[in-house]
Each structure stands twice: as C-alpha cells, then as structure tokens.
C-alpha cells in the first residue's frame, strides 16, 4: 500500500510540475494558450455532471433525483451571485431539504 501511495504521489507531482518546467524555456504557442483556457471548465464539468445525474451507475433525469435538482439550484445561485460560499451553502441546504421532503 505504501508503494502505491508513493508512486501515485510522485506521479501526481510530476503532472503538476511537468509543463511549469517545460515552458521555462519554450514559449507557449498561441493556439495552445487558447486551448488551455478551456481546461478548468471542461475538466471540472466532467467531474460534476456524473455526480448529479448518475445514480448507482445508471442515468436518472427524473425529478426525484434530488442531487440533480440541488445541482441546478446551486448553478442558478452561482450564476446569480457568483459567490462560492452562497453556492455551496444553498446547494447543500437544497439537497437536505429535498431529501427531507421527497424521501
């Protein structure tokens, strides 16, 4: 187990370090700079959506899927307030309220 932890740790650090060192000498070509703008948006959305609409491995788009509804509520709050604290707090409260009423 320790070996796995150290290997993953070293690998993750190498990932994080790779381009910071590589771009020390090289200049980032403009097209790549354009592509990198989409990195956080694409990577994080790809983590978010399965958490909201997959239930035990299968797609659940019904109104009884409280995580999806709470996710939509959080998205609206984020659009409206652009506030991290409000988004997380209201999103979590929405999930608890929906679970209390619907389950």
């Amino acid at each position: 187990m320790w070996a796995a932890i150290v290997v993953i740790g070293a690998l993750t650090f190498t990932y994080r370090w790779s381009f910071i060192i590589l771009f020390e000498r090289l200049n980032v070509p403009p097209w790549l700079r354009g592509a990198l703008r989409f990195v956080p948006i694409a990577a994080l959305t790809a983590i978010i959506t399965p958490e909201l609409v997959l239930h035990g491995g299968s797609l659940d788009l019904s109104l009884s899927n409280t995580r999806m509804i709470a996710g939509v509520v959080a998205t609206i709050v984020a659009l409206w307030t652009r506030n991290v604290l409000a988004t997380i707090a209201i999103g979590m409260a929405a999930l608890w309220a929906l679970n209390a009423f619907l389950k």
């Binding site: 989409f38 694409a42 994080l44 959305t45 978010i48 959506t49 996710g71 998205t75 984020a78």
Partner: peptide, 25 residues
C-alpha cells in the same frame, strides 16, 4: 460537485466556454 459548480459557473463567460462545458459534461 458543489465546490466545482461554484468554480465553473462564474467562468462561463462566452459561447465557446459554454459549449466546452456542455460537451465535457
């Protein structure tokens, strides 16, 4: 997912960004 929503949503400022998020999602 809530933390990531709080990060991503304010970053969606143009058509291309929204398309990237929708496709990835």
């Amino acid at each position: 997912p809530l933390t990531f929503i709080a990060i991503v949503v304010p970053a969606l400022r143009d058509r291309a960004g929204i398309a990237a998020a929708a496709a990835a999602g």
